[in-house]
């Protein structure tokens, strides 16, 4: 878990740049991060853009959805699903991705890094 005291919030882009019920990639100091927005739940998530399976920068182009109550993304290459809350692979394999906190203030979206 990230310790809230040390989070560095990075402003990434205005709300309107992001996709409703989908993902978009941002780049911060050379690192690619995928940002997802669920309109029905009004929830934001961020994870690594890289799918650990074949190391492709692709998760932002995957489809989002839910597995029970767990919000998830499915990689467009081989459909490995990951929880957007825990980063754990939901397709029965031991891959894991990093997750990052997201906050929206006014019209702007921020990602929290350590």
């Amino acid at each position: 878990m990230t310790d809230t005291a040390t989070i560095k919030w990075i402003e990434v882009a205005p709300l309107s740049e992001f996709e409703v019920d989908g993902g978009k990639a941002v780049i911060i100091e050379g690192k690619q991060i995928a940002v997802y927005y669920f309109q029905d739940r009004d929830e934001w998530y961020a994870t690594d853009n890289e799918c650990p399976h074949q190391k492709q920068q692709a998760l932002s182009r995957g489809m989002i959805g839910s597995d029970g109550d767990e919000p998830k993304v499915a990689c467009p290459f081989h459909k490995k699903s990951f929880s957007l809350k825990s980063g754990k692979c939901l397709s029965g394999e031991d891959y894991e991705i990093n997750t990052y906190p997201v906050k929206v203030e006014g019209d702007l979206v921020y990602i929290g890094l350590d």
Binding site: D21, F38, Q39, M63, G65, S66, G68, A74, S81
Partner: peptide, 19 residues
């Protein structure tokens, strides 16, 4: 799709029902 999900579905959908 949101209309369909709201009227006849549950949750946030997935890579099966969306496409």
């Amino acid at each position: 799709y949101p209309e369909l999900l709201k009227k006849h579905g549950t949750g946030s959908g997935c890579e099966i029902c969306k496409p």
